[in-house]
Computed example of a mutant assay.
Amino acid sequence: MKNIILLLALVLATVNTFAQDEIVVKGVVMNDANDDLLENVNIVNLNQVIGNVTNEKGEFAIRAAVNDTLYFSYLGFKSLRVRVTNDWLKFGDIKVKMTELGIALEEVVVRPVQLTGYVEIDTKLIPVYDNYRYRIAGLNTGYEGGGNQPGAVSKVLNSIFNPADFLYNVFGKRPKQMQKVKQMKEDDEIRNLLQSKYDRETLMAVLQLERVDIDEILNKCSYSKDFIYTANDLQILDAISNCYEEYKILNRQKR
């Protein structure tokens, strides 16, 4: 009898868990200053690593469970984190108000390359960016070494044969967070979001890393400074994913 009761309790708990995971929370996103509805606001569930965007009426719907954290981001507005509560589920739609930021853009001077028409001269005028990339047999991808070729080679070899303590501290001690990298790559909404962003905010929020940590991960994995500073967030996500996969391979071989 006790076994039957225990079995029923386990079944109910499992059903309850699945039901909780299937909850869809709804709301509307507005400008805090004037209550204007905000379209195309990006929403990411940091716990389940799924994303969505608001429609033309500022409305959104996304799967979430109680205590999940939703991350709202929108160009020109301060990013916002909202925790899903029982009250939200009880009373239905909520209004999420985002605060607008004042953005001062620095003047950018673009200097086009003036070509003369003479091949010998023009080849010297066109800038060359040497982001060398190296591939080592047995690994899934290569290493981007940067602008200094001899230093890049030694850096690659050093990364392979002597994995940095920093990578162990980030990857080895954060397996659950690193698992979210794969989930982010599989969610189309999140991929579309990251492809248009360069601020690393969403990556920082999901992976619980600081901007300096992300830069250091790529540096330890021998990506060039040009790549680190100019790549969009989706490219950075793919780079971190490749670095993590290679780290796991090398770590297994080392053990």
Rank of each mutant, 00 (worst) to 15 (best):
Y134L: 09
R111I: 11
N67Y: 07
L139T: 08
Y118G: 00
F91Q: 14
R133T: 08
I62R: 04
V66C: 01
N67I: 03
T123N: 03
T116K: 10
I121V: 15
Y118L: 04
V96P: 08
L89N: 10
I126P: 00
V108N: 15
G92I: 13
A65E: 12
K90D: 15
V119W: 09
Y71H: 13
V84P: 03
I94P: 05
A61F: 01
V119E: 14
G92L: 03
V109I: 14
E120N: 13
F60Y: 14
T54Y: 03
E144R: 05
L105K: 15
T85P: 12
T85L: 09
T141Q: 02
L80E: 11
A64E: 10
E59C: 08
N140V: 05
Y74L: 13
E144D: 01
F60P: 10
D122T: 05
K95Y: 13
T54C: 08
G146L: 01
P150I: 00
D68C: 03
F91C: 01
N52K: 04
K95I: 12
L115N: 00
K78P: 00
Y118C: 01
G76W: 15
N86P: 09
Y132G: 04
G102V: 15
R63S: 10
S79A: 14
G147E: 07
T116V: 05
K90H: 14
D68V: 05
T69G: 06
E56H: 12
F72Y: 15
E144P: 01
V109K: 15
V82F: 14
G76R: 14
N67V: 00
G58F: 03
T141A: 08
L115T: 07
I136A: 05
D87W: 05
N52M: 01
V53G: 02
S79T: 09
I94Q: 13
F91T: 15
S73D: 08
S73L: 04
L125F: 00
A104Q: 12
A65N: 14
A61Q: 12
L125A: 03
V110H: 14
Y74P: 04
K78R: 15
L70E: 07
L89A: 05
V109F: 09
G142F: 08
K95S: 10
D122P: 09
G51V: 06
Y118V: 04
R81S: 14
D93R: 12
V66I: 07
E106P: 00
T54G: 07
L89W: 06
V119N: 02
G145F: 00
G51Y: 04
V119T: 05
K97G: 07
D87Y: 11
L70K: 09
R83I: 15
V113C: 03
G92F: 10
E120K: 08
E107Y: 08
Y74C: 07
V84E: 02
